[in-house]
Every structure is written in C-alpha cells, then in structure tokens.
C-alpha cells in the first residue's frame, strides 16, 4: 500500500540533469499509477452501473420511440420537442405541452415551498440543538438523524396513515367536533408537500446545525453589548454567519424534492404527479422511452444548475471569510 509510506514532496522537479530528481519523478509517476489502480474497482463499478448508463440516456433522448417501448435507432429530436410542445394529431398545430408544463411547474413549486417550509422549521430546530450543552446536543442530533436513515417509503407511509380520511388527524378533529366530515388531505398537492417536508427536513437541519455549531457566541454577546435586540442579533449576526449552512440545506432539500418519486406517488395519488412520476410513466408498458430520457436530462440539468449555484455561493462565502 503506497500510503503506508511517506509522500515524496520532491515532486516532479528536475534541476536539469540530476539523476536523483529524475528518479523522484519516476517514483511519483509510479505512486500515481498505484493510486489509480487502487481506485479502479470502484470506478469500474460506477462506470458500469451509474455513470455510463447516463450517457446512454443522452443518446436515447435523440432516438425515435419504438412501437412497443424501447427505441428505434434513428436520429430524432421528437422527444425534446415533445418535452415542451404537443402537435395536434389532426391539424399539426403546435401548442405548449400543457400536461408536461403543469407537472414541471408543480415540481418546481412544491420543491420550492418544501424548501421554504424546511427552512422555517429547520432553522429554529438546528439553533435549538446547537445551543444545547455538549452531552444533550449529541442526543438531539441523533433524534434528527434517525428519521433521516430510516426507510423513506415507510416514513411516507406513516404520513399517509396520519392524514388519510380515516386517519388520526381527521379522527381527532372529528372527535373534537371541529369538523363534521373528514377533510380530504391525502392525494392533494398539500399532502405531497407535507410528505416532502417530512422526509427531507433532516437534510435541512443537519447542515444548518453544522454551521451553527461553530458560531462563536461571544460575537452574539458583542451584538447585545452594542444594543442589538434579539431580532437584530438574529438577522445581523447569526444569519450571516450561518448563510453557507442555509444554502447547503436548501440545496439538499430542493434537489431530492425535485426528483421525488415515491412521495408524490404515495401521497399524490394518480393525479398530483411530479417530474419523477412523469419520467417513470414513460417507461411503462409500451410508452415513450426517448421522451422519458429527454425528461430525465431536463431534470438533471435543473439539478446541475442548482448545484452550480451552490458551488458558486459556497466559494464566494469562503473567499469572503478568507
């Protein structure tokens, strides 16, 4: 194992002809090759079963759809066209693909509201954890982590049971006499958003906590010393300090919400679809694979833009803090 040895920082320097320097450079090359070889099995598995197939998706999005699912090997931009537009079968009139647009819009809208709600609930929660003493902090953190690692489907199922018409929420409300008939919560956009908030909230709390944990509370004291109110301290001192955590948390909630499949399927019923469901539908029995591929790439493009935004902001913040 190469890493058992001291790294040779002699690097690739060659004071012209010295043999030793050349030997050092050769040793460096050997070490690099060794490290690549050691990484190779992981890279190969990922190439075969994660990254390589993504390339195939791109190719498929430019092919003609096959009659019984699958594709015909013929170049076509039909799939990309039909992401945004539909063509009337009879008049050939081109109109915006309403179904796709409304699903795309719902995906973005629900993901956005989920992120905002996660911030509203997550910020105080992270702050609460970060201000506990060391011992109980670990316990609270553990309590946030548990749902994060438990099965997403089961958590969605749990939400479903609670909000269904015969569920505990409606039962309690009826029992209290607040409502006469159960409110329809399940299979609405609101239910989907609740579900997303529920399953992704820990992803907001964890990075927020990580940035709050490092706050030097003497800065907060300084704020109060300079006559700031609690609100001022929160807005002018704490918030700027945890901004990287806010951005990270928002990205971590927004991205999986956008690509969500299980939650809208279970809580949205058949009607309140999101992008993930739309994509999956294209691969059902004899559907439109190229369209599914094009939609997948659209989703990934949005995700990449969000990630780039994050990277840019993160590096800005870092640059500012030195």
């Amino acid at each position: 194992m190469a890493e058992g040895k001291a790294a040779h920082p002699a690097a690739s320097h060659r004071p012209a002809s010295t043999f030793a320097a050349q030997a050092a450079a050769a040793a460096d090359r050997r070490e690099t090759r060794g490290r690549w070889l050691l990484s190779a099995p992981a890279l190969l598995i990922l190439l075969f079963a994660a990254i390589g197939p993504l390339v195939i998706v791109v190719i498929y999005s430019f092919l003609k759809k096959g009659g019984y699912g699958g594709v015909e090997w013929e170049f076509s931009t039909d799939a990309w066209f039909s992401v945004v537009f539909t063509k009337d079968i009879f008049s050939d009139a081109v109109t915006l693909a309403d179904a796709h647009m409304s699903i795309l819009w719902r995906s973005v809208k629900l993901s956005f509201f989920t992120t905002v709600m996660a911030l509203v609930f997550g910020f105080p929660t992270a702050y609460f954890i970060a201000t506990r003493n060391e011992k109980s902090r670990d316990l609270w953190l553990f309590l946030i982590t548990i749902p994060f690692w438990t099965n997403l489907l089961i958590r969605t199922f749990a939400v479903m049971e609670v909000i269904r018409n015969e569920g505990i929420v409606n039962s309690i409300l009826q029992g209290l006499g607040l409502i006469d008939a159960p409110i329809q919560i399940l299979f609405t956009d609101f239910a989907v958003m609740m579900g997303l908030l529920y399953v992704y909230l820990p992803l907001m709390v964890l990075p927020l906590y990580a940035s709050m944990e490092r706050i030097d509370f003497r800065l907060v004291e300084a704020g109060y010393d300079l006559y700031a109110t609690r609100w001022h301290v929160l807005r002018r001192v704490i918030f700027p300090l945890v901004k990287p955590g806010v951005i990270a948390g928002s990205i971590l909630v927004f991205i999986p919400s956008l690509g969500a499949y299980v939650t809208p399927r279970v809580l949205g019923g058949g009607r309140n679809l999101m992008l993930g469901n739309l994509i999956e539908m294209q691969f059902g029995q004899g559907r439109n694979w190229p369209l599914g591929a094009a939609l997948s790439i659209t989703l990934m493009a949005i995700v990449m833009i969000a990630l780039l935004f994050y990277v840019k902001n993160a590096s800005n913040t870092e640059a500012r803090h030195g």
Binding site: A10, P15, T18, A20, A23
Partner: peptide
Amino acid sequence: AGFEMPTE
C-alpha cells in the same frame, strides 16, 4: 531515517 530521499 529514510522518510525522505535526498535530491543529491
């Protein structure tokens, strides 16, 4: 000790 090799 041998943790580095001399350049010369």
